[in-house]
């Protein structure tokens, strides 16, 4: 591999966060990309929190029951919906990227996005209903 000159020029350095999340004047694909990054980071944070919460099991039954009480509060359940949104978006967008990468829907990536998002929306509504009624 040849070494390439980087884009660093002292004046405008690399600004990955801006490149990822500055969606002004950008199109659908950039929104999908930006939200994908956000949900990806969110899911990592969740995973860590999840492990921390599970570790309360080490404190015995009492600690776990106490947590369950909090987890059943409507406020906490709303967080579950956000979590489900993250999982659905990240997962379905991942499927979109994978499909396009295999040449499926490369010409109509927008339609593919909206079809998958429609499926996601339906699943989200169903899960929300389940979360609040169980």
């Amino acid at each position: 591999m040849q070494e390439y000159r980087t884009t660093r020029d002292g004046v405008r350095g690399e600004r990955p966060l801006q490149a990822w999340f500055d969606v002004r004047k950008r199109n659908l694909g950039s929104w999908a990309f930006a939200i994908n990054r956000l949900t990806g980071m969110g899911l990592i944070v969740y995973l860590v929190l999840h492990l921390i919460v599970l570790s309360t099991l080490l404190q015995g039954e009492q600690g776990w029951d106490k947590f369950l009480e909090i987890a059943r509060s409507p406020f906490f359940l709303a967080f579950d919906i956000v979590l489900i949104f993250g999982i659905l978006f990240h997962g379905l967008n991942g499927i979109r990227v994978a499909l396009i990468g295999m040449g499926i829907g490369a010409k109509n990536h927008r339609s593919l996005f909206w079809v998958l998002m429609f499926i996601g929306a339906v699943l989200l509504v169903v899960s929300a209903w389940k979360v609040f009624t169980i």
Binding site: R26, L28, G29, S30, A32, M102, A106, K107
Partner: peptide, 26 residues
């Protein structure tokens, strides 16, 4: 590539680079 398709959106000459990159992958 992360399939943002911005290259294809801004291309002034109908090159459609995003599809080309996906074709390379395929």
């Amino acid at each position: 590539c992360h399939v943002a398709y911005e290259c294809t959106e801004v291309c002034p000459s109908d090159v459609n680079p995003a599809e080309a990159i996906m074709s390379l992958r395929g």
